[in-house]
């Protein structure tokens, strides 16, 4: 069942230097119980895409013409996310059907309130639980994510938590409202590998238990390989490749995905050279015409890649990429 459908999402920002395109014609689906990995380097538009799902991009964001985001939680009417105009209607999505966890858990908790107060507050806003029931549920959630002595931890402040515990508490808080969709924006990036492995295990168990969909944003292909069912690769606001995680990592079709994999140090061959992708990511104000990747692509064909935008080509039934090299010559 499709939980989230994004069609032709285009997001631009009005800035002093001009209009900047952050997301350009992005389409994807996410099913309930599925983890979709959204991969890309800084500036690729992955966070803007995620924030669009809750209209959190700020006042200077312009959502382009035909773009449509539809959220269909089980047993509820579908929500046209970009059609929501008033702040007071946003509660349906923000913290209601969608929860989000962030990279830096220290910055996401208020330092002067106890963790428990913050968990109860959001439950009181989004559910009709009594204060006591909200407290009981919060303690239960803290226990569920593996925080021992949750009754005591409930009354502590976030500075008393370690990094891994903060991220667990944030996950507990995000899941306590039973969202249909969880957006996880680089949730393990600030953590040590040993703690990262614990958080990844936890998130996979929670999907199995709660059945929500997860949009998992990261720049780390290894984390994607270990968590996601499907993966979408972004570059400069474009989705360049999507598919089942096995297909994309084993048989990458887009030159950018292949470049990312070649640049990544891997442990099975320590002597393999690290091959960087040539050049730098172009600035937001000088987006290349044609295929956005052609300025750094070794396979770019003169007169084609710099002129026209490649269309989405089917590699297999569940694997798609946008590159002229894949298109069958007419």
């Amino acid at each position: 069942m499709t939980l989230l459908s994004v069609r032709d999402l285009t997001v631009q920002f009005q800035t002093d230097e001009g209009v900047v395109t952050a997301v350009d014609g992005v389409s994807f689906d996410l099913a309930a119980g599925e983890i979709l990995g959204l991969v890309g380097e800084s500036g690729s538009g992955k966070s803007v895409t995620a924030k669009s799902l809750m209209q959190l991009n700020g006042g200077n964001a312009i959502y382009g013409g035909p773009g449509k985001i539809t959220l269909s939680p089980r047993g509820q009417d579908p929500v046209d996310v970009l059609g929501l105009r008033r702040e007071r209607h946003m509660g349906v999505i923000r913290g209601g059907a969608i929860s989000m966890i962030f990279q830096e858990p220290m910055a996401s908790f208020a330092p002067a309130l106890t963790v428990g107060q913050q968990m109860v507050e959001q439950l009181r806003i989004h559910t009709d639980l009594s204060r006591r029931a909200a407290r009981d549920l919060s303690v239960e959630m803290l226990t569920r994510v593996g925080i021992s002595d949750a009754v005591k931890r409930f009354d502590q402040y976030v500075f008393e938590f370690s990094g891994g515990m903060r991220q667990r508490a944030m996950i507990a808080m995000a899941l306590s409202t039973k969202p249909a969709l969880l957006i996880a924006d680089e949730p393990t990036t600030a953590l040590d590998v040993t703690i990262q492995a614990q958080v990844i295990d936890l998130m996979k168990n929670l999907v199995a238990e709660f059945g929500m969909g997860i949009l998992f944003i990261t720049h780390d292909l290894g984390v994607i390989a270990q968590t996601a069912d499907r993966v979408a690769v972004m570059y400069l606001g474009k989705l360049v490749e999507t598919g089942a995680v096995r297909d994309v990592l084993r048989h990458p079709a887009h030159p950018y995905t292949r470049g990312l994999l070649a640049a990544l140090p891997q442990l099975d061959d320590l002597t393999a050279p690290l091959i960087p992708i040539p050049g730098d990511i172009p600035g937001p104000l000088d987006r290349p015409a044609g295929c956005v990747f052609h300025t750094r692509c070794a396979q770019a064909v003169k007169g084609i890649c710099g002129m026209t935008v490649p269309s989405v080509t089917q590699v297999t039934a569940t694997h798609h990429a946008s590159c002229f090299a894949l298109e069958v010559p007419a």
């Binding site: 990094g163 515990m165 040590d192 590998v193 990262q196 492995a197 614990q198 442990l267």
Partner: peptide, 25 residues
């Protein structure tokens, strides 16, 4: 060994090694 086994492998089917460190430093 625990540090090495915690590195997420690029192979989605890599055997999930049992050596998980519990707790924090």
């Amino acid at each position: 060994r625990a540090l090495l086994s915690a590195i997420p492998s690029l192979d989605p089917d890599a055997a999930r090694t049992a050596q998980r460190l519990t707790g924090d430093i």
